[in-house]
């Protein structure tokens, strides 16, 4: 083969491969390959302390933050910042927890940590009144607006039954590590919002999820997107009137935290903490059936800590 032909063919192949990676949104499917050592536990549960203390202890049994964040990597931390309410109303993730996670990422050698959410209420107020913007900036993270369409890129969801395509925030697609930090709370129609439902905040087309069978779409998206780590904030838990809540009377202080690499397992555990069975929540059942994870907690290795 003449050298010219070789270059042409290589460049051609390179362009095709590059285009595939850039436009096919393949990146996130490989999420699980970031940590070569398997975590010691499938699920770490802890209760009885402050959010940052609980996180430190729980991440330890999972192999430490270094298991998930390698030196020089970029991390995107996606809390729930959906609502323009103060932290005590438990509609958004606890800012103390978000701060601690970011600090641990930097300790593990992260080059950059980004924080964002596609909020429901007016985003500047959500970011500031939830306390998360300040906590994240104090910890050294970059806080990025999430309500701007141009940040979202179209991706395919090959295993989706109803949801076959959507647009996902570029930070999720481009960062090395994705840490999903939802808060456990009630939800009027989805029954509960935990890890899988939190992913609605990285997708632009979520109105379509509501339009085309919400539970199926949540499960569809879970087959496509697997965060490297899921940290469920169950310190304050909104037991009714979710997901926005009406007043502090809707909230109980549960002082718990869950960590898992498996969203379905984390959601199943979250459901039980809340007082429901995983099968009561349709999207957990569907996601388990589609192979996005497992809800069968009896067959998982679980670490339980009480402070």
């Amino acid at each position: 083969m003449k050298r010219r032909d070789f270059f042409k063919k290589s460049i051609g192949a390179g362009v095709v491969a590059g285009a595939g990676v850039a436009f096919g949104g393949i990146g996130r499917i490989f999420a699980g390959n970031n940590n070569p050592l398997p975590a010691k536990y499938d699920l770490a549960a802890i209760k009885g302390g402050e959010p940052d203390v609980m996180f430190d202890k729980a991440i330890e049994v999972m192999g430490g933050m270094k298991n998930y964040v390698k030196s020089g990597q970029t991390v995107v931390v996606k809390p729930n910042i959906g609502w323009d309410v103060i932290p005590e109303k438990a509609a958004n993730t606890n800012p103390v927890l978000v701060k601690r996670i970011i600090e641990q990422c930097f300790d593990a050698g992260a080059k950059e940590v980004y924080v964002f959410d596609y909020t429901c209420d007016e985003w500047t107020r959500c970011y500031s009144n939830s306390g998360i913007e300040k906590a994240a900036k104090d910890a050294g993270a970059k806080v990025v607006p999430g309500n701007v369409e141009k940040y979202y890129r179209e991706v395919d969801i090959p295993e989706g039954k109803n949801l076959k395509t959507d647009k996902v925030h570029e930070l999720i697609l481009d960062s090395d590590v994705f840490i999903n930090v939802p808060i456990l709370k009630s939800h009027g129609s989805a029954k509960l919002t935990i890890c899988m439902k939190n992913l609605m905040g990285i997708a632009w087309g979520r109105k379509q999820w509501h339009r085309n069978d919400l539970h199926q779409c949540i499960a569809d998206f879970a087959t496509y997107c697997k965060p490297d780590l899921n940290v469920v904030d169950a310190y304050y838990v909104m037991k009714k009137n979710g997901p926005r809540g009406v007043s502090k009377e809707d909230v109980v202080t549960m002082k718990s935290l869950l960590i898992s690499e498996d969203m379905v397992a984390a959601d199943a555990a979250g459901a039980k903490l809340f007082g429901l069975e995983p099968d009561d929540v349709p999207y957990i059942k569907i996601a388990d059936e589609m192979g996005a994870g497992t809800k069968d907690l009896d067959n998982l290795s679980i670490s339980r800590q009480k402070l």
Partner: peptide, 24 residues
């Protein structure tokens, strides 16, 4: 309403309601 026409869950309205005047 899609719950009536398609028999699937939605609840977007109640989700956003700040007083839960719209409830499921």
């Amino acid at each position: 309403c899609v719950v009536h026409t398609d028999k699937t869950d939605c609840g977007a309205c109640s989700e956003h309601c700040p007083t839960k005047a719209v409830y499921m």
